[in-house]
């Protein structure tokens, strides 16, 4: 499992991904951790297959008892089908996930972990002195969907928005935006259902101060590539399967 620190200040953001032992027939995913003095938030913990390598990787940064919070942007199995296992490992943790998916996500097993439902309007996660904003991203692609924005680190964890279907071992940052576009096009056109939702999201996200957009698949965008991505996404017709 590759680990990349993407912010280091009074706390840290770490990206995990490109697991070499991942079975070939499951999609590669990025996981993100925010590590503060006494707590640790694990975003998009991943599927069952990824649980052991992910837990092992986090143990390089935090002890089990300090992994206090999980976040799932939506209900997909590659995001959170490992929930039942985290539920056994972290009996005192909280799962922040969309309110509308609670009854669905509990199918994965959630007996000990506290489910903190995120209302449609969004919310915040507080970790020690760090406040993370939960930005609504409904219909991008899931009908109940949130992204995590850190105004201090200027990072937007954008779930499936900005995702790309990459070959194994791809770099973690976009280095040639024009070349990267083709790896994103089909994913966004096919998985994102609503142009209206897309425009609404872009409008809100343009008002945020962002250094890094960190999606759940593929590469992260930094610097000017953040604006390039938003411009490209704005011009893209989505929901093309009908």
């Amino acid at each position: 499992m590759k680990m990349t620190k993407i912010y280091e200040g009074a706390y840290q953001w770490i990206m995990f991904g490109r697991d070499e032992n991942k079975p070939d027939n499951i999609i590669d995913t990025n996981q993100y951790v925010v590590r503060t003095a006494n707590r640790c938030l694990l975003m998009e913990p991943g599927g069952t297959e990824l649980f052991a390598p992910m837990l092992a990787a986090v143990l390089h940064h935090a002890p089990v008892e300090e992994i206090t919070d999980l976040f799932a942007s939506h209900q997909d199995p590659d995001i959170i089908s490992s929930l039942g296992l985290w539920d056994q490992a972290l009996p005192n943790a909280k799962l922040h996930a969309p309110a509308i998916w609670e009854g669905f996500l509990r199918h994965f097993g959630c007996e000990s972990i506290e489910y903190v439902p995120i209302p449609d309007t969004g919310g915040v996660i507080r970790l020690d002195n760090v406040e993370l904003k939960l930005i609504p991203a409904h219909y991008l692609h899931s009908s109940g969907n949130f992204h995590v924005y850190d105004p201090n680190a200027k990072i937007l964890m954008s779930g499936d928005v900005g995702a790309a279907l990459e070959s194994p071992g791809a770099p973690v940052f976009v280095d040639n935006f024009e070349a990267h576009v083709e790896k994103m096009r089909y994913f966004h056109q096919r998985w994102m259902p609503s142009n209206q939702a897309k425009r609404n999201w872009i409008e809100r996200v343009r008002e945020l101060d962002i250094d890094i957009i960190a999606p759940q698949h593929g590469r992260m965008f930094r610097g000017d590539d953040v604006r390039r991505f938003l411009d490209w996404f704005e011009g893209l017709q989505v929901g093309t399967a009908v």
Binding site: T48, F51, A52, P53, L55, A56, A57, L59, H60, H61, A62, P63, V64, E65, L85, Q88, A89
Partner: peptide, 19 residues
Amino acid sequence: NKFELAGVLAKGATYESSL
């Protein structure tokens, strides 16, 4: 089984024993 596997994979990690 997964915890056991995580233990093997976490060998040498700073917080290995917390598992």
